[in-house]
């Protein structure tokens, strides 16, 4: 993410240059991918455990499970972390394999909007059930 003071001279040239490659964001993408990966690990273990535990449950059983604050909070955290990780991963794949500039841009914007929309839909659904 580009912050408004990145370009207007508050940073010294050395600070600007340090750690920034041709993508102008340094290790930002890489680090976000690792951080979401670390977060995903316990969240997905919880998710698999929950899915196994909830299999075959009725609508009433499922919604009352999701209405418990801990479950709703973990579910929202999982959605945020997993979707963020998916966006970062998709971005790398699009950048690696699509070489037409306008199609690449279209795909990048499309993937981001798609996952953002899906994440909002998931979080809204969780909140609607939980609140």
């Amino acid at each position: 993410m580009k912050l408004k003071w990145d370009d207007n001279g508050i940073k010294s040239p050395l600070a600007r240059a340090r750690g920034l490659g041709s993508a102008k964001e340094g290790s930002d993408h890489w680090m976000k991918q690792r951080i979401t990966a670390i977060a995903n690990l316990p969240l997905m273990i919880w998710f698999v455990y929950s899915v196994v535990d909830l299999r075959g449950s009725s609508h009433a059983e499922f919604t009352s499970w999701l209405a418990e604050p801990l479950n709703a909070i973990l579910a929202i955290l999982m959605i945020i972390s997993v979707f963020y990780h998916a966006v970062l991963g998709s971005q790398v794949i699009v950048e690696d394999y699509i070489h037409s500039e306008w199609f690449k841009t279209l795909k990048l914007i499309g993937t981001k909007l798609f996952f953002f929309g899906l994440a909002v839909a998931c979080i809204f659904s969780i909140l609607k059930i939980a609140l």
Binding site: L66, L118, A121
Partner: peptide, 28 residues
């Protein structure tokens, strides 16, 4: 990479499950 793509597509199923549950017992 391949499993990453598969999992990204698989989020659709999770989304469906959650949205269906929020919509009501019939869609669930």
């Amino acid at each position: 990479r391949a499993t990453g793509v598969a999992l990204a597509v698989g989020t659709l199923m999770v989304a469906w499950w959650l949205i269906a549950a929020a919509t009501g017992p019939e869609s669930y």
